[in-house]
Nucleic acid binder design. Structure first.
Lengths: 175, 175
DNA sequence: GACGATGTAGAATGGTTGCTCTACCTGGGC
DNA sequence: GCCCAGGTAGAGCAACCATTCTACATCGTC
């Protein structure tokens, strides 16, 4: 029922998330997308377009899952964001941020890097808006990046550390 | 004058750092290593061994550069560590941590993941020892990971944010 | 000055990859 | 009943890649 492009994008996202960006062949990607090779190439005319489609899909899903319907109070919002990032890591991204992985796999690709930049900028902006910490976008970003990278290594302990550091941020702002 | 293995390892490190782990062909790696294909395969008998050699070299260089000869006072030590990580990012790792990049490029490889784990664990341990923050390894790790990932996106602002968050860590400990 | 260890140069090989192309199927609108 | 937009299935192709192999150079040691 979902239109073809959506089905392709979410299949590709799943494939890259589990297999990385280097390993999966286009035939693997076709299997994951659940369409024929011809249709796959019709919607995403090259392998890098497949990567782009997967990341666009990821971006939309991540923003919705982490930032939609947050509690209005700043400290509660920040706590909830961190909890949701933890949940995201647990169920979706057991080995780190997909955007960083894409750039790492192909560091020379400027388009990919622009996509990463846009994703992180939007994440920081939405977090700042939700927590009333305008002007602290970089602090928030550092916290999220730290949590996202430390989670695969330390699991719940990473969440606890992020929570502790977050408190000093909100306390600072209300002082 | 340096023995062959060392020359190969540091050449490989340079190649992977600038080209990522997926793109460079073994011939590219040979050029970077500055030896013949035969010699390259003698010391690193497969491409994954080349990756391993590069990462081992990176590990040694990183630890030496960030943790050797730190000031004895805890707060000064932490500050100095962050400054050195910033310097490292600026001159060596303009697009993130090489260990995470290696794992991202080949997420199924357990050996690589073990190498990442070992690297980060050792970094956290040495940082905790140098700053007198035993028991806070995860907090330190989160801070370093955050800085390392945010630096390519925000540059000096990332350093400032890391410094601010670090202060709350040391203040906490002395309280 | 001969020898063996260690290096270089680069051709050959067998397998894989990204991508294209041909041929066929299917279901809703006229 | 026919058509055609939009799909499937999968063979074919040229390029590339990791790895191996052959043939030759260099140098320190005896």
């Amino acid at each position: 029922m979902t239109d073809t492009m959506t089905r392709i994008a979410s299949g590709l996202e799943r494939a890259f998330a589990s297999g990385g960006f280097a390993a999966p062949s286009v035939e693997d990607l076709r299997d994951a997308a659940g369409v024929s090779l011809r249709t796959l190439y019709k919607y995403t005319p090259s392998r890098v377009e497949m990567v782009r489609a997967a990341l666009e899909n990821r971006h939309r899903r991540y923003l919705a899952r982490v930032f939609d319907d947050l509690p209005p109070a700043p400290e509660a919002a920040l706590d909830e964001i961190l909890t949701r990032i933890g949940g995201w890591m647990e169920t979706e991204a057991s080995h780190g941020c997909l955007f960083h992985a894409a750039v790492a796999a192909d560091p020379g690709n400027a388009d990919l890097r622009a996509l990463l930049e846009r994703h992180k900028t939007e994440v920081a902006a939405r977090a700042a808006a939700a927590t009333g910490l305008a002007g602290r976008e970089t602090h928030l970003l550092l916290l999220f990046e730290g949590l996202t990278q430390t989670w695969p290594l330390r699991g719940a302990a990473a969440m606890a550390a992020a929570g502790a550091l977050a408190k000093t941020l909100t306390a600072d702002a209300s002082a």
